[in-house]
């Protein structure tokens, strides 16, 4: 027993809390945020003209928006000490089914379709994402199959199903109106797709940090048996978390349609790994129990900034994955060291 344990709480002011600054510096999030800031500042100092150009920033943000939405769902999953390898494939599936559905209700080509069709397309994207998420969730929580295996399965299955839907080709005919407003449209210079991603992220952050749903997410990841013994429905909660991740992947698919004006069936094979990397870079523990959506935002932008920054300052972009890998491994190593130190008490 250490001596400071003799201080009882009654001798302290009511609600004694660790000072804000100590809590912030103790969190991984702050450090990751600093890394991001330093990167931006460094690239900005080398080529201020190129880095702080409006179009550079717009592009960076828009390209990152889709990954951000996937990563918000992934944050919840990883905090429960799970993993979701299927997000990229589910995105493709949702994107293809939504584009096809819009075409079908417009008599074959939805290019000139109105808001009714667009709304229907959004619904189809969300529902198809949700269905895959629900399937993942049920297999993981009811059948007790490890998340890695379940989502490895749906990773392949959703991609295969998406290819089957349109014989392996991309789907065009995305409504112009959708592309103009959400794809290429901006609001005070910010691409609308980014605003959507920001709103989703903000809601996700609030859900995780202020609600009972968020608290149960941490509890299940921290000690599943403890959560069960206080009467939390662990199975139900896990199902909901994977359902959320699937639904967000569906939304991301719809955002992709709006941005690229086509539902593409390739190019999302590594979305899952990028999302996982972003979440872990952002300080969420791969062992579950801790993490934050804010951290994930930083984690999404670090690889993106590295990629753009290296190109702008003339370093070959092949260095980017190497740089990300180093930061990633360092982040996990730090987390592990911290946990080991903590568990030795």
């Amino acid at each position: 027993m250490t001596t400071d344990e003799k201080t009882t709480m009654s001798s302290l002011p009511d609600e004694r809390r660790t000072p804000l600054i100590r809590r912030l510096t103790g969190a991984n999030t702050l450090w990751i945020g600093l890394v991001l800031l330093v990167l931006v500042a460094a690239f900005g100092a080398i080529r201020p003209d190129a880095v702080f150009q409006v179009t550079t920033l717009q592009f960076l943000l828009a390209e990152t928006a889709v990954l951000l939405v996937l990563s918000v769902g992934m944050t919840f999953v990883i905090i429960t000490s799970g993993i979701d390898l299927s997000v990229g494939s589910v995105l493709v599936f949702a994107s293809v089914s939504s584009a096809l559905a819009m075409n079908v209700v417009s008599g074959g080509d939805a290019t000139n379709a109105g808001w009714g069709v667009i709304g229907f397309g959004l619904l189809v994207a969300l529902v198809s994402g949700a269905v895959w998420g629900l399937l993942n969730g049920l297999l993981i929580s009811r059948a007790k199959i490890p998340p890695l295996i379940v989502t490895l399965g749906s990773f392949g299955a959703a991609q295969g199903a998406a290819l089957l839907l349109n014989n392996g080709s991309n789907v065009s005919g995305i409504p112009d109106r959708l592309n103009r407003t959400f794809g290429s449209g901006t609001y005070f210079g910010i691409p609308n797709i980014v605003i959507v991603a920001a709103v989703v992220t903000a809601l996700g952050a609030l859900l995780l940090s202020t609600t009972r749903f968020g608290r149960y997410t941490y509890a299940v990841g921290s000690n599943e048996e403890a959560a069960r013994r206080v009467g939390i429905s662990v199975r139900g909660h896990l199902t909901k978390v994977y359902l959320l991740a699937g639904t967000l992947a569906g939304l991301a698919g719809f955002m992709g349609n709006a941005f690229f004006r086509v539902a593409v069936v390739t190019g999302h094979e590594t979305d899952n790994l990028n999302a996982i990397a972003a979440v872990v870079l952002g300080g969420t523990s791969i062992f579950g129990g801790t993490g934050s959506v804010v951290g994930t935002v930083f984690g999404v932008f670090i690889p993106a900034v590295l990629e753009k920054g290296l190109v702008i300052i003339g370093v070959r972009e092949f260095w980017q994955p190497i740089a990300v890998a180093i930061v990633l491994v360092a982040a996990v190593w730090l987390d592990q060291t911290r946990r080991r130190a903590r568990n030795q008490r």
Partner: peptide
């Protein structure tokens, strides 16, 4: 906080993770 005080759980601060406490705490 009131409850821990009443039942003699002595903690330096109430917002650290349980894992950071000693086994006894």
């Amino acid at each position: 906080s009131e409850h821990f005080t009443r039942f003699g759980a002595t903690l330096q601060s109430i917002d650290v993770p349980i894992a950071a406490l000693s086994g006894g705490q």
